[in-house]
């Protein structure tokens, strides 16, 4: 799956011009938007609803909560959610912190202008460079014969594989995910850092605050909603991703998307409705994440007008 920033979506909504209210309309006006709504219904909403409804049914078509209960009862499924959440959490948190540090460095660090523009351009590309090729790139870097592994072994005498490192693990996957998580963070958080006005720092200084007090009482609280919102977005971003993980570790890594992939291919759970429940669980996690994202975003935009 490829991701791009959705940072400007809210802008689009906010700065939309006020349009005149349309009065009574003949139904013919609906013809203009009918194809879109029919398409969305058939290929986005109904297929999703089909799975959601299926998650609450048994083989006989009766409504039940058994499948949902099963999600928590089944050790392997529970583990897969746990691993997925762990990977998403750490890749989102680390990605957000590193991305924030880089964004602050390019916006506030007094670096030349080209540093900022080239970082922004590169981030736009890298946040879209996910999927199978990304897995290849990291295998060529940190795999057993990867460039960094080889250089560390031959030049510095550090054999990371002998020390227990393996790139084909959850932590390896986290390192790989950072390649699109960090740039996505930079793309989304940079406007928020731009919104920090220089006068705030000066006002704080004239009021007697030290730099640290200014950061603690103003900068961090102001950036906090944007930061938290973006962390959640990054979380959802990696929670639904499968291609990189699949190309990286095959089906050996027990994460939810890979489990669902195997279930779609061959009903490994021996219960189609449990498969629906698995999908429903993913929708719940990413859906909740997005609701929080929007909530935090609205908060920070109110401040940074």
């Amino acid at each position: 799956m490829t991701q791009a920033s959705i940072s400007t979506t809210a802008d689009a909504a906010r700065s939309a011009p006020p349009e005149a209210k349309s009065g009574f309309r003949l139904p013919t006006h609906w013809l203009g938007v009918a194809p879109f709504f029919i398409f969305a219904l058939m290929f986005l909403i109904l297929p999703t609803l089909y799975l959601v409804v299926g998650a609450f049914q048994n083989d006989q078509g009766q409504y039940t909560l058994d499948n949902i209960r099963q999600l928590f009862a089944d050790q392997s499924i529970r583990d897969s959610y746990w691993v997925s959440i762990k990977i998403s959490f750490w890749s989102a948190t680390i990605g957000a912190l590193v991305g924030l540090a880089m964004a602050i460095a390019i916006v506030r660090g007094g670096l030349p202008a080209w540093v900022r523009s080239s970082t922004m351009t590169f981030s736009g590309v890298a946040s879209n460079f996910a999927g199978v090729p990304l897995a290849f790139a990291f295998l060529a870097t940190l795999g057993r014969l990867g460039l960094v592994t080889v250089i560390l072994r031959d030049v510095f005498g550090i054999n990371i594989y002998a020390m227990g490192f393996n790139v084909l693990t959850s932590w390896g996957l986290i390192i790989v995910y950072l390649f699109f998580q960090i740039p996505l963070m930079i793309v989304i958080i940079t406007p928020a850092i731009d919104g920090l006005k220089r006068e705030w720092g000066e006002a704080a200084a004239t009021l007697g605050a030290t730099t640290w007090q200014y950061w603690r009482m103003v900068v961090i609280p102001v950036l906090w909603p944007s930061f938290l919102g973006t962390v959640i977005l990054l979380f959802a971003n990696s929670f639904g991703a499968i291609a990189t993980a699949y190309a990286f570790t095959g089906s050996s890594l027990n994460i939810v998307p890979i489990k669902l992939y195997a279930q779609i291919r061959g009903d490994v759970l021996h219960n189609p409705h449990l498969g629906y429940a698995l999908a429903f669980g993913m929708i719940v996690v990413t859906g909740l994440a997005n609701i929080f994202y929007i909530w935090f975003r609205t908060r920070s935009e109110r401040w940074l007008k």
Partner: peptide, 26 residues
């Protein structure tokens, strides 16, 4: 139909919320 904008915008954002694997499963 500017009054439909929020609805349409919400629908267009759904593919970012629902993972691709779930959509294709459906």
């Amino acid at each position: 139909m500017p009054h439909l904008r929020p609805v349409v915008e919400f629908i267009t954002l759904l593919p970012l919320v629902i993972p691709a694997i779930v959509i294709v499963f459906g």
